[in-house]
């Protein structure tokens, strides 16, 4: 018999999928570009310039990032509204992960909104009014100047941590939601793998951020 797909089913599957692709993939690219800062402002600025020279960049940005991002964020909030967390009575790891996934989602909603307005569009008066995309040659300086403000830097550390958590746990969720990981042992092993991915991404993400205030990152000359 032909199976009819319900609205919710399609929306949820899209939500699960957009989290990994394109958003997860984009995050990897983003961290890669950020990490160019480790070898100096010139490399980073060039990387930003390269990105801007991608053909059809506007379409890629809108179709590949903004639309999926807005969909994932808004529908994520819809899902979050349905949650009835009960961690105090059922204090299991996965139940905490469940709640944290939603909390990080809310954090990300605000953090990414701020981050995009801040750097991509340069629309936060009093903080930054230069769009990195339109001034790639100044991009390192724009970021670096802001990161020297401790509060902004803390906001970014929190934002990066939340993002990494949300993605690492999101990968695990994708694996089970799409029926790739099934059994208990597989759940456990993929869980460890996701923790490893998360720790690695966290190190890369934070180190790149540090590179904007301390040349070469946390341990200069490591690479």
């Amino acid at each position: 018999m032909a199976i009819r797909l319900s609205r919710t089913f399609i929306l949820r599957k899209l939500h699960q999928l957009t989290g990994i692709m394109p958003l997860g993939i984009f995050l990897l690219e983003h961290f890669y570009t950020n990490s160019k800062a480790l070898s100096g402002p010139g490399d980073f600025n060039n990387a930003v310039k390269d990105l801007q020279s991608i053909p059809y960049i506007l379409l890629v940005e809108i179709g590949g990032i903004f639309i999926p991002l807005i969909y994932h964020a808004v529908y994520g909030l819809v899902i979050t509204v349905e949650a009835r967390p009960n961690n105090l009575h059922y204090p299991y790891a996965r139940n905490w992960f469940y709640t944290i996934q939603r909390v990080t989602g809310i954090i990300l909603f605000f953090f990414i909104t701020f981050h995009v307005l801040n750097f991509r569009f340069g629309m936060i008066p009093g903080l930054n009014t230069l769009s990195v995309a339109h001034h790639p040659e100044q991009s390192f300086e724009i970021v670096s100047r802001e990161f020297h403000n401790v509060w902004i830097f803390i906001v970014y550390v929190i934002g990066i941590t939340a993002t990494v958590w949300h993605l690492a746990n999101g990968i695990w969720l994708f694996l089970v939601d799409w029926g790739i990981t099934i059994g208990e042992r597989a759940q456990r092993l993929t869980g460890y793998a996701c923790i490893a991915i998360g720790l690695l991404l966290l190190a890369v993400g934070i180190n790149a951020a540090i590179a904007f205030i301390k040349p070469g990152g946390l341990i200069p000359g490591l690479m």
Binding site: S6, F9, R94, T99
Partner: peptide
């Protein structure tokens, strides 16, 4: 609409 995709993997 109230189907399997509503699972949030809290595993309680």
């Amino acid at each position: 609409d109230d189907g399997i995709t509503n699972c949030g993997n809290a595993q309680n």
